[in-house]
Amino acid sequence: MDLLSLRCFQVVARHEHISRAAAELHVAQPSVSRTIARLEAELGVPLFDRRGRRIRLNQHGAAFLRRVDRALGELEDGRRELADAAGGEGGTVTVATETLLTLAGLLAGFRAAHPGVDVRLHQASADAMAERLRTREVDFCLVSRPLTGPALTSVELLREDVLLAVPTGHRLAGQEGVDLAALDGEPFITPSPGHWQRTLADRLFARAGVRPAIVCEGNEPGAILDLVGAGLGVALLPAMARDTGGRGTVAWARLAAPDCHRVLRLARHEDAYLTAAARRFGEFAVEHFAAVPGRHLALGSAAVSRPAVF
């Protein structure tokens, strides 16, 4: 077996879909199918269960994938380590985030401080981030909920209140301590399940026995502020969104819920090799968010200690 076959298997295993894997690998679908068939013949066991055009990783495939991930991860770490040894102030850091809004201020400062570092971004759901860290596709993930998995570690960057964004002129605009019961039946805009805002909203509303009327759910959290400003409904948004736009069309209120906040973390795989560029980014991110005013909970929480982990 060769590295191309192993990489092909890894991508097919992640997607459990031949055509999607072929698109990511930029090869023809029949070529992917032949590669997987040759690999299975060489190993002597099927790696996938097939039902018509659908494939599912079986127990043999899952066991083999763990080894492949480890082997390819070690090779990728070796490549990065040798590139690091060549020296220079450049290099590349790859970051995944749920919404690019979170990175805007951080990137402006980092690029000014380290103009030679190439930053590559991916937008991904929290569920996909652990996989990207495990396969070394990214160095870091900025995530608003804990990532679970072997060897995943994180440092807390900030805690901030989550506010209720409402259209200007709304009956709740500017209010403090809004009872959740006031949102019963209210038109509500939210990301789809899996996003941290949706998880938070579902928890708060279930606890209060409230059922807002979801009028929009999708996978573009960055568009929610504009939709609120357009009068479509109300939404839960982090405090930093208040400073990004919609000032003339969006007003804000605070819910009477002490746990209505988010914790932003910078996550990485502790066994992955961090290049000098990646370490600089991690250190800069911790310093950047530590210096942002008003980024601790306004509801009485103490300042968060930020250990150096890079």
Rank of each mutant, 00 (worst) to 15 (best):
L6K: 11
V309F: 10
N219G: 09
T249W: 14
A104I: 12
A113W: 12
V143S: 05
A21E: 04
R203I: 03
A272H: 13
M240T: 14
P307G: 11
D2R: 13
T102W: 09
V166E: 00
L297N: 01
P46Y: 05
W252K: 07
G194P: 02
V68R: 06
A165Y: 09
D271G: 12
P150H: 08
A22V: 09
C8G: 13
A213G: 08
V12A: 10
A223F: 06
H15M: 15
S33T: 15
A85Q: 13
A201E: 04
V68F: 05
R111Q: 13
L65I: 07
Q29C: 06
I224H: 00
A13L: 10
V286I: 14
H26E: 13
R268G: 02
A213Q: 15
F64L: 13
A41C: 08
A201F: 01
G90H: 05
R134I: 04
G87I: 03
T99G: 08
T102H: 08
R70Y: 13
D259C: 07
L274A: 09
A83C: 02
A21Y: 10
D271T: 14
V27S: 10
A108C: 08
H269A: 11
A308F: 11
E270G: 05
D243K: 15
V263S: 11
A308K: 12
